[in-house]
Simulated scan of single mutants.
Amino acid sequence: MTQAASVWLVLVVAMIAANLPFLNERLFLLGPRLHPKAFAWRLLELVVYALATWALGIALEGSIGQRAPQDWEFFAAGACLFLTLASPGFVWRYLRRRHAPTQHD
């Protein structure tokens, strides 16, 4: 896999993983259905998916060649990027207007 393909793969996986906690009611996609799922569960899923995406990035970087050293700035920027990628799911789950059901007599 080329370096450019690896970067795009990590970005696509990050976009999907960042929105998964907000788009379903199951715990980690396979667990029991919680309705409504608490915000704390969504945050925990977001952290776990971010770590899984980070691990994928490390694995792909290692398969291309030697890993570059990263300091705290890299991880802070990565966390901010992951939260930014999660914004569509957050907006859809919490900020979207829901229409009141109409009553038919």
Rank of each mutant, 00 (worst) to 15 (best):
61 E>C: 04
23 L>M: 12
97 R>S: 06
63 S>K: 10
26 R>M: 10
71 D>H: 14
16 I>E: 01
12 V>P: 03
11 L>Y: 04
17 A>Q: 09
91 V>G: 00
87 S>R: 09
50 A>Y: 10
39 F>D: 13
72 W>T: 14
70 Q>D: 04
92 W>E: 10
12 V>T: 11
81 L>N: 01
47 V>E: 08
28 F>G: 07
8 W>N: 03
97 R>H: 03
27 L>G: 05
5 A>W: 04
45 E>Y: 05
12 V>K: 03
70 Q>F: 02
26 R>C: 02
32 P>W: 08
95 L>P: 02
39 F>T: 15
79 A>V: 11
69 P>M: 09
37 K>N: 07
61 E>Q: 04
42 R>P: 08
101 P>N: 10
96 R>Y: 11
8 W>C: 06
32 P>R: 10
78 G>S: 13
24 N>I: 09
27 L>P: 00
25 E>A: 14
10 V>W: 06
62 G>P: 03
21 P>F: 08
58 I>V: 15
80 C>R: 13
45 E>A: 07
48 V>M: 09
47 V>Q: 06
50 A>N: 02
54 W>V: 04
30 L>N: 07
7 V>Q: 05
97 R>V: 11
51 L>H: 00
23 L>G: 15
80 C>N: 12
80 C>E: 12
94 Y>T: 11
83 L>G: 08
32 P>T: 14
22 F>H: 07
103 Q>C: 01
51 L>F: 06
55 A>W: 15
35 H>S: 15
16 I>M: 02
17 A>D: 03
102 T>I: 11
25 E>F: 07
53 T>P: 02
70 Q>M: 06
31 G>N: 05
100 A>E: 11
17 A>I: 09
70 Q>S: 09
11 L>V: 03
84 T>F: 14
41 W>D: 04
97 R>Y: 09
31 G>V: 09
24 N>K: 05
14 A>M: 03
54 W>N: 07
13 V>Q: 01
69 P>Q: 07
64 I>K: 13
28 F>Q: 10
89 G>L: 03
23 L>W: 11
56 L>R: 08
30 L>Q: 11
100 A>R: 10
50 A>T: 03
32 P>S: 12
6 S>K: 04
79 A>L: 15
35 H>P: 00
85 L>Y: 04
53 T>D: 04
68 A>M: 06
77 A>C: 09
25 E>V: 07
68 A>Y: 09
68 A>K: 12
62 G>T: 12
32 P>F: 11
101 P>H: 14
32 P>E: 12
94 Y>P: 00
98 R>N: 07
4 A>S: 14
8 W>Q: 01
12 V>C: 01
65 G>W: 06
39 F>W: 15
48 V>Q: 05
43 L>Y: 09
20 L>D: 01
